[in-house]
Nucleic acid binder design. Sequence first.
DNA 1: TGCGTTGGTTATAACTTCTAACTGTTGTGA
DNA 2: TCACAACAGTTAGAAGTTATAACCAACGCA
Lengths: 211, 211
Amino acid sequence: MTTESTRKPRERYRAQVRDEVKQRAWEQIAANGVTALSLNAIAKEMGMTGPALYRYFAGRDELITALIRDAYRSLADTVRAAHEAGTTVVALAAVIREWALSDPQRYLLIYGTPVPGYHAPDDITAISDEILAVLLEVCRSPHDAPQSPFDVFLGMDRGWASTVAAPSPTVHRALSFWTRVQGVLSLELAGHFTPMGFDPGLLLAEEVADL
Amino acid sequence: MTTESTRKPRERYRAQVRDEVKQRAWEQIAANGVTALSLNAIAKEMGMTGPALYRYFAGRDELITALIRDAYRSLADTVRAAHEAGTTVVALAAVIREWALSDPQRYLLIYGTPVPGYHAPDDITAISDEILAVLLEVCRSPHDAPQSPFDVFLGMDRGWASTVAAPSPTVHRALSFWTRVQGVLSLELAGHFTPMGFDPGLLLAEEVADL
DNA sequence: TGCGTTGGTTATAACTTCTAACTGTTGTGA
DNA sequence: TCACAACAGTTAGAAGTTATAACCAACGCA
């Protein structure tokens, strides 16, 4: 959504159209969910006919994949910014919740119902790892000794499997943090809390407070 | 899926066809998710033409609603059975996880991405309340005084709002239990744990152990 | 046994994604 | 400057989908 710097005018136009398509796609998704996303409708909104969009996206799936990538990117940037500004786990949870509430369908596109056959491309899983890396940083307990460079190497560069094989309190905290945040958000965004009439933000804060 | 006892043969046949439609719908959903559910395909599988199914379900939405109802019913029965057999919170979490893993798409039909406009009919929310009532029972702390009949009345019969307005440790425990279970399951079923290579069941057990 | 309720059929409308073939326009290299 | 190739967008059409309308036949009850 951001590439304004370009080279040839042809590519410039191309990126521009791609961005507009994605923007209208987000509007449709926010309004009626991802199942209601229609290439035809987007094309009509942009004053084109249906097949024209296939110049820009190979099909519906590739468009959705691009949207998922943008959603991950947005969350990763948000989380990273909060971390670099110095944040606690409670504050980070609130930041993530705000991000999710600002566009519920965007959150659900990542953490909602997955389509059974789908496998995310590597660049997307890379962004996911980016998020988890920040999570590990934030969940490093203050009264624990700061991680040695080797610990960081174990935890982030060599992947999760080896880290979990050698369990550390930090990893456990990060996992608990992540699942509790997802638990509150998935239930809240699906509307399962609304009949109970309380503030899910308070529940979330308490859930991550005693980590 | 269970009504074998019937009266007139006409209604008997009707219920039979409805059940077969739902069964084939579950198979399609389990294989390719709810978006791939096709009335036409079901009809063809049953040796009928498409519009014939509209004698049994008003449309795709009503079929899905019936499936959601059955899913809730199944979960409520499972949870209730575990409770009546006498269970701890850890064991109950494992039971719920087993239920979810036995048919992930059935779980996701209830707790996955909701369609924005959808409002569940009252009989479905009633089943949901049933589940929450059992949860409250199980989360009644052993070292708390057993709830008086009036407490039970406050907690279950008068709805959640009044209960939460008068916060009790039991309600808080139930809410934490529920969100943590959902957190682990939603991440596990969406495949977000697979690259990390650990047993989500262990994480779930630890998450609900210290309530 | 007659007849109404109900199941299942075809036909059709209005959608969808997506491919193929054709037509302009645009940018660029000679 | 001009020609040509690359590319955007078009129409046409195939193969799906949900859903409605109209029609026919069979079943079961009075």
